[in-house]
């Protein structure tokens, strides 16, 4: 699993990552306390965190000796960009259909 090349849709396709984001949606958490909720190795948890971080779903802040993960909007925006793109796409296309048909009736 390469951490860098994963896009937003792939990030949220993984159930563990979604679970992590749900936990983080309630509160910022340290990587350690996040890991306590999962039956997986610490390196596996770190890998998921790195993936979410790279895709802009979380930010990481060092406070004292702990690393805090916080949910971030950027990753979600990428998902939303897709919907917005197609929403605008259909509006443009349907306007075009309307003007074609309107011209047709004038003839």
């Amino acid at each position: 699993m390469k951490a860098r090349t994963i896009d937003a849709f792939q990030v949220i396709a993984d159930p563990s990552r979604r679970q992590m984001m749900h936990l983080l949606s309630k509160d910022s958490m340290t990587i350690n306390s996040l890991a306590e909720n999962f039956d997986m190795s610490r390196p596996a948890v770190s890998k998921h965190i790195k993936i979410m971080y790279n895709a802009g779903f979380i930010s990481i802040k060092d406070i004292g000796r702990e690393r805090y993960c916080t949910l971030k909007q950027d990753g979600f925006n990428e998902l939303q960009d897709f919907i917005n793109y197609f929403d605008k796409f259909w509006t443009n296309k349907l306007n075009k259909l309307q003007s074609i048909l309107n011209n047709k009736s004038k003839k």
């Binding site: 849709f9 949220i12 979604r18 984001m21 749900h22 979600f76 925006n77 998902l79 939303q80 919907i83």
Partner: peptide
């Protein structure tokens, strides 16, 4: 995806 849209 819907779930995440909702969450966001």
């Amino acid at each position: 995806e819907n779930e995440m849209f909702y969450m966001a």
